[in-house]
């Protein structure tokens, strides 16, 4: 039972992280039909920028910085985590806008070409990040004042950052996005734009500005995801690919462009990942090595019945 709770929490927190990253991906697609294959790169870059800010500004490494646990004993205040989070997120948002304005604005509508362009950008970004940040896995330090773990009823111990911070961040972001989409003028335009872009621009709304806003928001979400993921898991080359794949699976399951679909898709992927890693043991037969097949089966199962995903609508 304890194990089950822990595994479920693992799945939920993974799902939370997947949701934060994939929601940006799906919102951009929903409005602009742009499949941003560099979304994973923005995720990883966001994490690295936050790490860079944290180590440059907030680490006063005394001594040799050597310790058995591999972590220096430096103290980090809450601001040493929050300020890098905010700055890195904003920087990634701006990078997203630049990317959209320079590379994607003039070929709006050519979705394949845009996908290829963002693939090219992700190749370049991945290589440059490897050159600058190296191949060793790093992580962002959570504030030292925060407890490392919490104890839930039933003597279940779970990581504080993972269980409390990431989960509540995802819930807040989900709520925030819902309110933005449903309650603001920007959200109204976005919803109208998803259904009929030409009509919206014919009504005299500056679509380009809405696109900029959406790309800012979408990239920003990737950046937040990167900082959360960099603190919760780690930052390493290959994470960009992993999170691009996760976002793809989440939105393929949930349906491209749907926020609710992203939440459902993230939950399904996170929980299936977590359970398959632990519970694929039948007596002596240990199939946990094959857990990726379950993820695949999930994807295939959804696509076989709903080619556009659970909440997908034809373009």
């Amino acid at each position: 039972m304890q194990q089950f709770v822990t595994v479920t929490l693992n799945g939920l927190t993974l799902a939370a992280l997947y949701f934060v990253v994939a929601s940006g991906f799906t919102l951009i697609f929903g409005l602009m039909r742009v499949v941003n294959m560099a979304h994973g790169s923005l995720y990883l870059l966001g994490g690295y920028i936050a790490l860079e800010i944290q180590t440059r500004w907030f680490t006063s490494d005394s001594g040799l910085g050597l310790s058995l646990s591999g972590k220096s004993d430096a103290e980090y205040s809450v601001f040493a985590w929050l300020i890098p989070l905010v700055l890195a997120t904003l920087i990634i948002g701006v990078i997203g806008v630049v990317l959209q304005q320079v590379f994607l604005r003039w070929n709006q509508g050519q979705d394949l070409r845009q996908a290829l362009i963002t693939i090219a950008l992700s190749v370049i970004l991945a290589d440059q990040m490897l050159a600058y940040f190296g191949g060793i896995s790093k992580d962002i330090a959570a504030p030292s004042a925060w407890p490392t773990s919490i104890t839930l009823p039933g003597e279940v111990r779970f990581g504080f950052f993972r269980g409390v911070v990431v989960l509540s961040a995802a819930v807040l972001i989900g709520l925030g996005l819902y309110l933005i989409i449903k309650r603001t003028r920007f959200g109204k335009i976005v919803r109208a734009g998803v259904d009929d872009r030409e009509m919206v621009s014919a009504l005299g709304i500056n679509v380009n500005r809405v696109f900029i806003g959406m790309f800012f928001l979408g990239a920003l979400l990737a950046g937040i995801g990167g900082v959360l993921g960099g603190t919760m898991i780690s930052l390493a080359p290959g994470q960009d690919t992993a999170f691009l794949l996760n976002s793809l699976i989440v939105v393929i399951i949930g349906g491209m462009g749907s926020l609710g679909g992203a939440a459902i898709g993230a939950l399904a992927l996170g929980l299936v990942d977590a359970y398959a890693d632990v519970y694929l043991v039948f007596g002596d037969l240990d199939l946990t090595n094959y857990s990726i097949i379950v993820t695949f089966a999930l994807l295939v199962g959804v696509l076989a019945f709903r080619p556009l995903g659970l909440y997908g609508r034809p373009a």
Partner: peptide, 21 residues
């Protein structure tokens, strides 16, 4: 049964899943 950009994404997911497998 999917087209265009959906097809691209689904096949990408296939390829990466084969690698992970």
């Amino acid at each position: 049964r999917s087209e265009g950009i959906y097809f691209l994404m689904i096949t990408l997911a296939f390829s990466v899943l084969v690698y992970y497998f």
